[in-house]
Design a protein around this nucleic acid. Structure first.
Length: 308
DNA sequence: AAGACGAAAGTGGTTGA
DNA sequence: TCAACAACTTTCGTCTT
């Protein structure tokens, strides 16, 4: 925490929280944001100049979730106006006008879009890193004019979806669709379009990334969860996973694992949280049984039950 | 009665000519 | 641009628990 502020000017509290990432100081008692866009005093761990090892930089940390990156400029201020002569004053107005024209269209769009983005992101409880990434993607998309002809919201949703995938915190299209109010296919379309145009490469999502979330909403034990990941790994070796929807595979692995651990969930329940149908689970489930020697274990379970 | 299973027909998207 | 194709869904009837 920099020396500048020690007490909250509003309530006098000393319980201040310095959010380095956003360059804000916030009073924990009254919630007042005391200082925004302040200089980040933490060191930059990159070497700028090999001649001296001095690491430094200046300026507020840049962020994409603020429409002007937190670095916006404005030509002149009203107060300066009175110091200028007629000619200078004309020049001043001209410059201001240009500045306004250039930036206003894109910025207004970004301002709205980022508000929407934050809304959806917080609805889905996405981490800050994903939010930043998607804001970056959206900004690029706007600059390339990719939003034209598409609704702003759908591009936002597409950017979020892409960011989720890149950060290995995949959300299903259904979830994104629910959070943003955009149709699933529309999101998928803009997602593909934007990533293609921007040359963003996305690895196919790993089913294991879904396990944790599905397991917790099904209230399954930790063992069941880790076991299902083992099942997934075997399935991947047996090449059961390529070309299939990752959610279906994750759901099936979880279903099998739950059976083996005596924490049975119905196919319906698993299907619902995974956003697939029972039929898909059945198909994957059957393949899993075929390829792995799980049949015996399942039968064992059944026998145990009969004895009781 | 509810859940599991499987067949058949339909949908949206990819691929290759 | 169109047709073939694979994955997935919807729907429905049957079997099992």
């Amino acid at each position: 925490m920099p020396e500048l502020v020690k007490k909250c000017p509003e309530c006098g509290g000393i319980n201040l929280n310095w959010n380095k990432e956003r360059g804000e100081i916030i009073c924990r008692d009254c919630g007042l944001v005391i200082e925004e866009k302040m200089v980040d005093f933490t060191q930059e761990w990159r070497e700028f100049d090999s001649a001296d090892g001095d690491r430094r930089r200046a300026g507020a940390p840049m962020t994409y979730t603020q429409y002007d990156h937190g670095l916006g400029t404005e030509v002149g201020q009203k107060a300066d106006l009175f110091k200028l002569g007629g000619r200078e004053r004309n020049k001043f107005f001209r410059l201001r006008k240009w500045q306004y024209r250039i930036s206003t269209a894109i910025e207004r769009n970004l301002k709205l879009a980022l508000a929407e983005l934050k809304r959806v992101s917080s609805f889905l409880k996405l981490p800050k890193s994903v939010e930043e990434e998607s804001a970056r993607i959206y900004t690029l998309a706007v600059q390339r004019g990719l939003v034209r002809g598409r609704s702003m919201e759908s591009v936002v949703a597409g950017a979020l979806y892409a960011a989720c995938r890149r950060h290995d915190v995949p959300r299903t299209l259904d979830e994104l669709s629910e959070a943003s109010g955009i149709e699933k296919k529309e999101i998928g379309r803009t997602y593909r379009f934007v990533t293609r145009e921007l040359g963003i490469t996305i690895l196919p999502s790993n089913p294991a990334d879904y396990i944790a979330r599905f397991a917790s909403s099904l209230k399954l034990s930790a063992e069941t969860q880790s076991n299902s990941i083992e099942i997934l790994e075997e399935a991947q070796k047996a090449e059961l996973t390529s070309g299939r929807g990752p959610t279906g595979i994750a759901a099936a692995a979880l279903y099998v694992s739950a059976l083996l651990h005596g924490e049975k969930r119905t196919q319906r329940e698993v299907a619902d949280v995974a956003g697939v149908t029972e039929v898909t689970i059945r198909n994957r489930y059957k393949e899993l049984l075929d390829e792995m020697n799980l049949e015996k274990e399942i039968k064992k379970k059944k026998k145990v039950k009969k004895k009781r």
